[in-house]
């Protein structure tokens, strides 16, 4: 396999041609995206350069506490992104969501790096950080979809839920359909990704490994592990978060707490 070719700074700037094309399209057709494209470009450069330096530092340091700190920062950032997307003021969902994310992602990343890939030490940052990042990124979107769906359905179907409660259903029975639909809605993108992988798209991690000179047959093995890991962690975190948050939608008398907007 050939050595990876470095991209020089001038070559990197050349890639800005793509941004100029996007900016020109927005300008000509009055899409109103010029500002967002500019901010997005600056953030892409800044965040990735920062990440690059941080990773270089962590890979050299081999300090488990540092690796865990980065992991926690990633989960906290994901939580803030979810909070921005799920506009719910009445039901406190942040803490149960955050704790579930932390525990389930840690367990998944541990399982994959420690057992499936079999790295020692298990926190080896070259494996642990990217694996954790993929789990967090994937399941973050699933959780945002599920939470949004659960709160919306709970409000829209409040009368139906109360009808079931009035007939003697407990809160779990009264909200069973809403719970199922919320978890399903979050899981569908991960399942669809399993259907399309290798046919419709080549996943980012595998592309990266191939670009870096890894044998494609090794790269696919990593990718299979990653796909399965993503589906599993999404399922676990969605189910657990929805169980906790659903309980919070009901009061001590199992009454629906959400009021219509």
């Amino acid at each position: 396999m050939s050595q990876i070719i470095n991209i020089s700074s001038s070559q990197l700037l050349l890639a800005l041609v793509f941004i100029l094309i996007a900016q020109a399209s927005s300008f000509i057709y009055h899409l109103g995206l010029n500002r967002d494209i500019a901010i997005g470009t600056i953030r892409t450069f800044a965040q990735l350069f920062l990440m690059g330096y941080v990773l270089t530092f962590i890979l050299k340091s081999s300090n488990p506490f540092l690796v865990m700190s980065i992991f926690i920062v990633m989960v906290v950032s994901a939580m803030f992104i979810i909070k921005g997307r799920v506009k719910e003021k009445q039901i406190p969902y942040i803490i149960p969501t955050f704790l579930t994310m932390l525990v389930s992602y840690l367990a998944t990343a541990l399982f994959v790096s420690g057992l499936v890939i079999g790295i020692t030490p298990w926190w080896e940052p070259r494996y642990f950080i990217p694996a954790g990042g993929m789990v967090i990124g994937n399941s973050m979107s699933a959780l945002a979809i599920s939470l949004e769906r659960m709160f919306r359905d709970m409000r829209h179907q409040k009368e139906l839920v109360e009808m079931k409660l009035s007939l003697g259903a407990n809160y779990r029975e009264a909200s069973l359909d809403i719970f199922r639909n919320a978890v399903t809605a979050g899981m569908i993108p991960s399942i669809n990704a399993m259907m399309g992988v290798g046919l419709v798209f080549i996943p980012g991690m595998m592309s990266g490994q191939i670009l870096a000179g890894t044998d494609p047959l090794i790269a696919i093995r990593y990718q299979i592990v990653v796909m399965l890991m993503l589906v599993g962690s999404t399922a676990v975190s969605s189910v657990v978060v929805m169980l906790f948050v659903r309980r919070r939608c009901f009061g001590s008398g199992e009454e629906v707490l959400l009021s219509p907007r």
């Binding site: 009368e159 009035s166 008398g253 009454e255």
Partner: peptide
């Protein structure tokens, strides 16, 4: 709560039905 509500039954102003047959609705409880 479930025990109370099966003994003290509340019927709302706008009747709610599940998307199923009359029999399934009646047997829902």
């Amino acid at each position: 709560p479930a025990k109370l509500r099966s003994t003290v039954s509340y019927v709302a102003q706008i009747p709610q039905m599940i998307d199923a047959s009359v029999e399934e609705n009646l047997l829902l409880p």
